[in-house]
Amino acid sequence: MKIKNQKIIDFFEGNLSEEEKTDLLKEVNSNLELKKEFESFKKLYSSIDGSKNVKISDDYYESILLRFRNRNHKVSFLLKPVFVTISVILLTSSLILFLLTRTSQDDFNQNNDFVEINGYDFENVEQMYKLVNEDKIIDLLFDELINKEENIIAVKKYLQIEDSYYEIPESDAEDIYQELLNKKIL
């Protein structure tokens, strides 16, 4: 049946000579099982042809470049030397301010059990800490996921990857860790 299916596919894709077409049609008409297969392929090719006539609205195509340019402009702006310099100065000033405030507050509260930390400054330090350590955390988590055999088997099964040497790309695994970090699971 595999050979016949190939013939039928060739028929619908225009790869058979006139003589081959006639021979196949004769065979199809004299064999019920083959006729059923032929009709199924006919329906498939008809659906495929029908789906080629799709037309998407022009509004969407008009929006593609506009959104790309907007997004790209924002990224370019964030990477401009002036913007980066100002950000670094602001961040450094905030850190110095925070350390000074914290020192004076520590002195003030040294005999108290509860030490109040300014929320804004705390946020900055937390962000800086996160920036410095995020890469290390991602590396550690990546190693852990890759070393768990059952994860790899499940992923391969889901993706129907036959190659037993296939490894999950680092970028995919990092994406997972990022999701975990975002959800504050870690």
């Binding site: 659906s47 495929i48 029908g50 789906s51 080629k52 006539n53 799709v54 037309k55 998407i56 609205s57 509004d59 969407y60 993706l159 129907q160």
Partner: peptide
């Protein structure tokens, strides 16, 4: 959001089938 103007039924049927291929 990308409105399909023509051929929606056949397109969606084939799209649904394609999703099941590796």
């Amino acid at each position: 959001p990308a409105e399909i103007i023509e051929g929606k039924d056949q397109f969606e049927l084939v799209e649904k089938l394609l999703k099941k291929l590796p």
